[in-house]
Amino acid sequence: MITIESARVRFASTEGGAPMVALADVSLTIARGEFLCILGPSGCGKTTLLKAMMGLVPLDSGQIRIGSHAVTGPGADRAMVFQNYALLPWADVTANIAFGLELRGASREECARQAAHWIKAVGLGGFEHHLPRQLSGGMQQRVGLARALAVEPEILLMDEPFGAVDAQTRRLLQEDLLDLMQRSGKTVVFVTHSMEEAVLLGDRVALMSPRPGRVREVIEVGLTRPRTASVEREPRFTELKEYLWERLRAMRDEAADA
């Protein structure tokens, strides 16, 4: 279980003005094995919240706990998938996937064995020795996902992982992620700016609003699992999507009035 209690993060402003409040008093509980999507307009602090869970961004006040342990930095129980893939450009697919294991001191054989397993699991067979620049964006993110899964984290933190790929590729990646995660029992926190994506993937959707970043509302998705992309035809899916869009639009209007 992840417990976030009154988390606040401020960033020093670059022009020496008042510090920017990225997260204002965010509290949220994420159950073990849950798939939580964090949805919000850009600048709402959703990425900051995710990085705080990873231990990459320190809190100014409040606390984030995994089980009973407070997060003070990155840890082996969590792994992250990055928006911009963040692959080592000089390393091939195998070496990139094994990077986390290598840092943890796994033997060469162990790295190779695990990499081979995850290459197959994410559908990259035949690309073992390709370099990142030889792969499409979608395939690069498959490498990013495999690298995170290879360290066998309990919690997977995903920062708009499919934001930079085209619509068709994104759809395939979403379906494959559903497939992989439903069998794993891992806790997933997934940041997105897409309403469809949030409803398709999440057990719950946490809706955030910007300036200052806070969680406005947590919505139960309530669609059955195991889920496939066919849930998009269910009335509940459309209803939720519409609701989220209304809420996001209301936030925009509020911001415009302010």
Binding site: A86, L88, R147
Partner: peptide, 25 residues
Amino acid sequence: WELLEMSSAFGASEWQLWRKVVLRG
């Protein structure tokens, strides 16, 4: 910074960061 952030997320020590990422890049 993306690669540096990724490395620390995967638990790289300062030494590993230099040896496996910075000197190569």
